[in-house]
Design a protein around this nucleic acid. Sequence first.
DNA 1: AGAGAGGCCGCAATCGTTTGCGTAGCAGAA
DNA 2: TTCTGCTACGCAAACGATTGCGGCCTCTCT
Lengths: 347, 347
Amino acid sequence: MADPRLVRVTTPTLRDVAQLAGVHPATASRALNPQTRPLVNAETARKVLRAAESLGYQPNPIARSLKTARSSTVGVVIPDLTNPLFPPIVRGIEDVLTTAGYNAWIVNTDNDAGREEALVESLRSRQVEGLIVATARREHPLLVRLHDQGVRMVLVNRKVDGLELPSVAADDDAGVALSVAHLVALGHSRIAHLAGPQGTSTGVNRARAFRHAMIDHGLPDDPALTVECGYWSESEGALALRKLLDTGAEFTAVVAGNDLIALGCYDVFAERGIECPLQISVVGFNEMPFLDKMRPPLTTVAIPHYEIGGEAARLLLDTIEEPERHPRSVLMAPSLVVRASTARPAR
Amino acid sequence: MADPRLVRVTTPTLRDVAQLAGVHPATASRALNPQTRPLVNAETARKVLRAAESLGYQPNPIARSLKTARSSTVGVVIPDLTNPLFPPIVRGIEDVLTTAGYNAWIVNTDNDAGREEALVESLRSRQVEGLIVATARREHPLLVRLHDQGVRMVLVNRKVDGLELPSVAADDDAGVALSVAHLVALGHSRIAHLAGPQGTSTGVNRARAFRHAMIDHGLPDDPALTVECGYWSESEGALALRKLLDTGAEFTAVVAGNDLIALGCYDVFAERGIECPLQISVVGFNEMPFLDKMRPPLTTVAIPHYEIGGEAARLLLDTIEEPERHPRSVLMAPSLVVRASTARPAR
DNA sequence: AGAGAGGCCGCAATCGTTTGCGTAGCAGAA
DNA sequence: TTCTGCTACGCAAACGATTGCGGCCTCTCT
């Protein structure tokens, strides 16, 4: 208030344009909006456009939102931007959104339900037209409530039990099938699984896929060889591997729930002087950046992050335009990228 | 679900609260706002608050923005979220912003001036109250124009020539001094510098600091031993090192402009069968994540990303509250983290 | 020539808040 | 009692756009 200048000095409004063009603001509005342009005479439309151009008029999205209850904005809710999995997805989302004239509001929940609820509330009060959610848990009261309220959303990577929502994710089954096949081809038969949190759909899907893949190869599906991580993190991966090692179980390879869990294994290898891949092979999941420069470079299953984000955005735009359309889900094909963390078993 | 309505079914407005409390909306508004609450009788204020509470009233930020030309939102403009340097900074920004009741709008410019201009324009039209800018180049017409127009901003990591703006960055001088001292202590004397883009203040600062450090140690400051990278990227780092190697210059260590450039060196080492650190030592800058798991683990100078973000946000909040305050800049102290990419020179 | 039909456009309300201004009411002072 | 001053509140005008409704004008058809 001390400073009268806020962000802008003074910006031309619709009235200015109308005045310059010699028409009523309503007419100017109609002329400027391609949707309603047919309602005004082509000649006056031209005049208005010229006036807008010459003034450098930019419609005020706030005023527009207030009137139309729309915002050309969607909310993107992710657990943590710091997890390298998410930035590429976000970029994918943004890129298709902006070409469609939309914007993305990004929020981090830190896996905290209270925080998540507050953030979503704040997004809604900003009239976002939909949500792209990457934080889904299998039990997720907030998301079912939002769904019941008719909030448009699409899920990324994970789903919630019993909720029919559009979603896009990597094909987990195919991904771990690839991993297991690779290890089996190398000669491994005692393979362990460091599963992601079983409270997330991805966690259980990959674990189930792991069992199936083992069976398909005629290998024993030993429950003692899979241990669950509480979070998708390095430290939890390390914890899980230590636990497994301490049981004295025998195994020559581990397929990790994701790359972070796999990297957690590296820490344990260092602690206990285990040689990877000589003594134990590891394969990750997600192909996060810089894996090729790790020690050893991590074999992992690559998923098209950027495309997943883009596809999610497209799905959301679809449901915004056609709310009644039946929810469809898309699975993106993964591929295995073999590096130096996997090799033939020693014996 | 068959609900054509947008995000919200129907949300209580200020009028509803006022009606329930039996007062005029103006009074309700004043009662709800702590700033103006003293203007209304304590008893009626209580009534209003209770009404608001019972309705679950949430003020509509859009309407408020329209009226007040404020938004409790600041824009954060970064080059690319995918660069692991930025997520922690963004988190730092967000965390102090939200505790102050503000929100952050994040945009990626991809180092494209046109894109940047459009994005900033869109931020301004959304009435952001200030900008946190991490894309500054030494010559940056857009930023000087914004500054002239009185847009509040603070710079992160980089500055623009001749512009007095609040900024927060790591102490580059101290950082490279640390690196060089470390290498000299190991016995290196022929040290090369793979400089960042000289169009950015950080690029020239670190290069200058490198020269000074060399001189301080009584070592020759050989211009042939520093080569500039066009971008802060792996590929540019690789390019620069190849160029340097191809000149036949002699050196046993390189201090890289940042971690990505250093990692680019790793690629060249692999290409040409160079052993690091046996033949060449490398030190990076920034301490991006997972460096400890690289091959070899990269010695680098660590800077407090999260705190830098937080400090930037605080600075911006300061200038929002006290626009006339003289711009201050803060330098954060770096520290060297020694890993396995540096060792005594072979001969 | 008169009537009906559209095409164009202006009027004014509206979205939900904030805020300058005016005023009713009341207390205290003269 | 009358006047002053203050507190507490209501009125209404904004902020900048969108949009239903209605009216004018012109054109066409009979």
